[in-house]
Amino acid sequence: MDQKYSVPALDRAHAVLTELIDEPYRWKLSDLAKRLDISKSTLYSLLQTMERLQWVNRDRNDTYAIGGALGRFGGAFFRQYSLVESFRKIAEPVMRRLQESVQLAVLEGSDVLYLAKVEAPGPVQMVAGPGVRFPAHATGLGKSLLAGMDEKRLRSLFPDESLPKITVHTIGSRESFIQELRRVVENRYATDIQEGIMGFCCVSAPIRDASGGTTAAVSCSMPIHHWEGKREAARQEMIELAGRLSLGS
């Protein structure tokens, strides 16, 4: 990975957390400063911030341990694997009914990250599969994941008014994309009509957590010549699949 864009404060925070993993409530600020070769003044500011964010806890002896926020992050990390397992079980019969591929993805910055795929038999397939990243604005999955997001955050994710055109059908402006996301909120599903890959369409729906936030999304993709005959069935199947995978449903 290119070190040119690394953030030194995050590197130092990572070093602190690495020290605390195996030996909680052993090291004080002065100990950590010596072990990590970080000045006390710099480390003091860093630990104050990490404590505020609940990345670390400090006890009455001024020693440190991993904080509760990291436990929540870790829980979210492992829940996604539980989600993948559930998806594979539930999406298999959906794929058989539709005879089209079904995907699961999460949002990473302004991209979607594919976590799992139940692939339909057939000679024509999309390339996207587990581990593949793709620009969120050019996919139904991305629209489902971004719909309902605060507009200020959307603008920070997409700082330029012009959006990259993946195909001739990709939405090319940020304002048009924001308008599209508003429609997705109203409809409870999103579509991608040859916006990410020429010759393919998809319909997607968001997976919710217990508080109603979007944590992941599912989609059904198919060759365009199947779209008119299957889009309504696929739309209903994706809404139901997302509902079954949502917490609190």
Rank of each mutant, 00 (worst) to 15 (best):
48 Q>M: 09
52 R>E: 08
17 L>R: 07
46 L>Y: 02
36 L>W: 11
38 I>R: 02
44 Y>G: 00
41 S>G: 03
51 E>I: 10
36 L>N: 06
36 L>Y: 03
46 L>M: 02
46 L>C: 05
19 E>Q: 12
20 L>W: 12
29 L>H: 05
33 A>P: 01
39 S>E: 11
22 D>M: 04
27 W>D: 09
46 L>F: 01
28 K>M: 11
44 Y>F: 07
34 K>N: 14
51 E>P: 05
47 L>P: 00
27 W>Y: 15
42 T>Q: 07
17 L>Q: 09
52 R>T: 05
55 W>L: 15
54 Q>G: 04
53 L>E: 13
14 H>M: 12
38 I>V: 13
51 E>K: 15
52 R>I: 10
52 R>P: 01
19 E>T: 01
26 R>G: 09
16 V>M: 04
55 W>P: 03
55 W>N: 08
52 R>D: 06
32 L>I: 02
24 P>D: 07
43 L>C: 07
36 L>M: 10
36 L>P: 06
19 E>A: 08
49 T>S: 11
49 T>D: 04
53 L>I: 08
35 R>K: 15
48 Q>D: 14
31 D>E: 04
12 R>W: 01
50 M>W: 04
23 E>M: 15
19 E>L: 12
42 T>H: 05
39 S>M: 06
54 Q>Y: 07
24 P>Y: 12
54 Q>M: 11
31 D>M: 02
40 K>V: 12
48 Q>G: 11
14 H>G: 01
44 Y>I: 00
26 R>W: 10
34 K>Y: 11
49 T>A: 12
32 L>H: 05
45 S>P: 00
39 S>P: 05
53 L>N: 13
22 D>V: 03
24 P>H: 07
50 M>P: 03
42 T>P: 00
39 S>H: 10
49 T>V: 06
19 E>D: 09
12 R>E: 02
16 V>G: 03
18 T>F: 00
14 H>E: 10
48 Q>L: 09
16 V>R: 09
45 S>H: 12
25 Y>K: 12
38 I>L: 07
